[in-house]
């Protein structure tokens, strides 16, 4: 009998620890599929963040470094400079990348480090129990914004893709989601583009995935994906903000 669906070769046989409905598992799988299809699974080195995906290394079969909070792009810089023939990527959430690690992501992008960054933006700190993130929407209630995020008090949600797209060095900056089958297919294509650019030594590639957190949003996975489409996508519009090699049209 023909096997039509299997675990990507570069992933391990470890069950995900993520909450039911969480997008992390979906994005992990897409990463594994892309690396397999590009035949670089044995040349990949991942950098795990601090946050829900701190144990990302458990699910992949290749080498990994587990970095301090926000520092993954700096750690990845050190690894890639020593091992330029490897595919080095970070996988970071919004607290990690857009708050405590803002300097590291901006400067790794600005140096044009030949790494790939996968940025999971679900507008909240997951692992610490649902605190306000830099990407939390105005009016959104969290453990540390119980009356809703107040722009006068805490500013506005930060749009990292738009910000990084203003820099000269990055070759690919795109924002995707995995809330529908159509968007999921686009997300996979974006991830594959990002890794392909690194494989070809082109430069810094960045894929933001607008995601859900059913547990800390207090919603079922189905309702969370509806809320993502209605509330998050107007603030974080999907699309490609920079594609200096024209990979999307090639």
């Amino acid at each position: 009998m023909e096997q039509v669906f299997a675990r990507p070769k570069c992933m391990s046989k470890t069950p995900f620890h993520y909450c039911p409905g969480c997008d992390h598992g979906v994005v992990h799988r897409l990463v594994g599929e892309c690396l397999d299809e590009l035949e670089v699974g044995d040349k990949a080195i991942g950098v795990a963040p601090v946050g829900c995906s701190v144990f990302a290394y458990d699910y992949f079969a290749f080498d990994f470094n587990q970095a301090a909070h926000g520092r993954a792009p700096a750690v990845a810089t050190g690894i890639k400079r020593v091992r330029p023939d490897h595919i080095v990527f970070t996988y970071q959430g919004d607290g990690d990348l857009a708050a405590i690690g803002t300097a590291e992501i901006v400067h790794a992008a600005n140096r044009g480090e030949k790494i790939t960054v996968i940025f999971i933006n679900n507008a909240i700190y997951g692992m610490t129990g649902g605190q306000m993130a830099p990407t939390t929407l105005i009016g959104m209630k969290t453990a540390t914004s119980p009356y809703g995020r107040d722009a006068q008090l805490c500013g506005h949600p930060i749009r990292v893709s738009e910000l990084l797209a203003t820099l000269e060095a990055p070759v690919y900056v795109t924002r995707v989601a995995v809330n529908t089958p159509a968007n999921l297919m686009k997300a996979k294509k974006a991830l594959k583009n990002a890794f392909r650019l690194q494989k070809e030594g082109k430069g810094f590639s960045f894929v933001e995935v607008v995601s859900i957190c059913p547990t800390n949003w207090g919603k079922s996975p189905v309702d969370a994906h509806k809320w993502l489409a209605e509330k998050m996508l107007p603030v974080f519009p999907l699309g490609t903000y920079k594609d200096s090699t024209g990979i999307e049209n090639s």
Binding site: A68, R71, A74, V75, G78, V82, H107
Partner: peptide
């Protein structure tokens, strides 16, 4: 490599050391 901060520099060291340098 001149890093953006001391924090980034030591984490680049962490990465490079973990890669065997």
């Amino acid at each position: 490599l001149q890093a953006e901060s001391e924090i980034a520099a030591i984490n680049m060291v962490y990465g490079a050391a973990s890669a065997g340098a």
